[in-house]
Amino acid sequence: MEKLLILLGQDPLIAQEAGRYAIWLIPSLFAYAVLQSLVRFFLAQGLIFPMPLSSSLVLLLHIPLCWALVFHLGLGNIGAALSTGLCNWLNTIILLTYLKYSSTCEKTRVHFSTDVFLSIKKFFVLAIPSAVMVCLEWWSFELLILLSGLLPNSKLETSVLSICLTTTSLHYFIPYSVGAAASNRISNELGADNPRVARVVVWAAMVLAVTEAVIVSTILLCCRSVWGYVYSNDMEVVNYVKRLAPLLSLSLFADSLQAVLSGLHFQE
């Protein structure tokens, strides 16, 4: 990972820390995969309560745990990765326990069998396009990174990059929520043999995505001269944020469409 980041033009010291963080974050990926499946399972049944409850409990633990690992034990980035992994596993275990023992899941609870292997092909038919959608999201982030690499100094590069990525990341949750809601509504309607209603949901989600993207992009363009002041008082940083605002607006528009489309599944 470190060599790959250096090859892409990253600072060697940053590449070394990022590589260590990525390696220690690998155990968290397995928990995250199970967690996402559990979230879809609960959403498909309208069981919302266990998810915010579990997330709230994990958040209360994550804050002191992350502080202890990063600062008290001096693990730095490795501590941050470990705390993320431990909390993801804890969240997964809580939801699995709820699934196993709660009476609300009694009728939908199933046991593992070899039949799951018969559905692997269908799973990949949906998984591969979804993975491409996620790649498009991160590639849009990387485009900002490459362009920020053209800035005259590393300090300015880091500041402007942080502002752009923070803005994009915060905005992403809005279209992502629309896509998630549309995904579950479409799945329920198709399961109830209502393809026409599912088609209406698709169009409604796309209209919301385009409308939201136009509004946010327009606001950012109109406020490009002052947006940098939200994060920094450095005039040089503010001016470069102003220059990157049109590209950032385009990125936000693309992210809105991608986030909603990633939640829409079309079936013949």
Rank of each mutant, 00 (worst) to 15 (best):
L221S: 07
V160R: 02
N188F: 05
V201W: 09
V226W: 15
C223M: 11
L190R: 08
A192E: 09
S217K: 05
T158D: 07
A245T: 04
L252C: 07
S256A: 06
I163L: 04
A254W: 03
D193L: 14
N184K: 09
A204K: 11
T167E: 05
N194Y: 04
E157V: 15
A205R: 02
S256R: 02
L208F: 09
A180I: 10
L252T: 04
T211W: 06
L221C: 07
L156G: 12
N194F: 02
D193K: 11
R224F: 08
M235V: 14
P175N: 06
P175C: 04
L170S: 10
V226H: 14
Y172E: 10
R196W: 12
L248D: 00
E189T: 15
C222M: 12
V260C: 10
F173D: 14
R243M: 03
V230T: 09
S162C: 02
S187R: 14
N233W: 05
S183E: 07
W203M: 10
A198D: 03
L190N: 10
W227K: 02
Y231T: 09
N239A: 10
S232I: 00
V238C: 00
R185V: 00
S154N: 12
A213S: 10
L261G: 03
S154M: 07
E157P: 01
L161P: 00
N239M: 07
L250W: 06
A259W: 08
Y172C: 08
S217V: 01
V201P: 15
A182W: 03
V207N: 03
V200W: 03
A245I: 00
L250R: 04
I186D: 14
T167P: 04
I163G: 01
S187P: 00
A181D: 05
W203K: 12
L156N: 09
S169A: 11
V202G: 10
F253C: 05
V241R: 00
S262I: 08
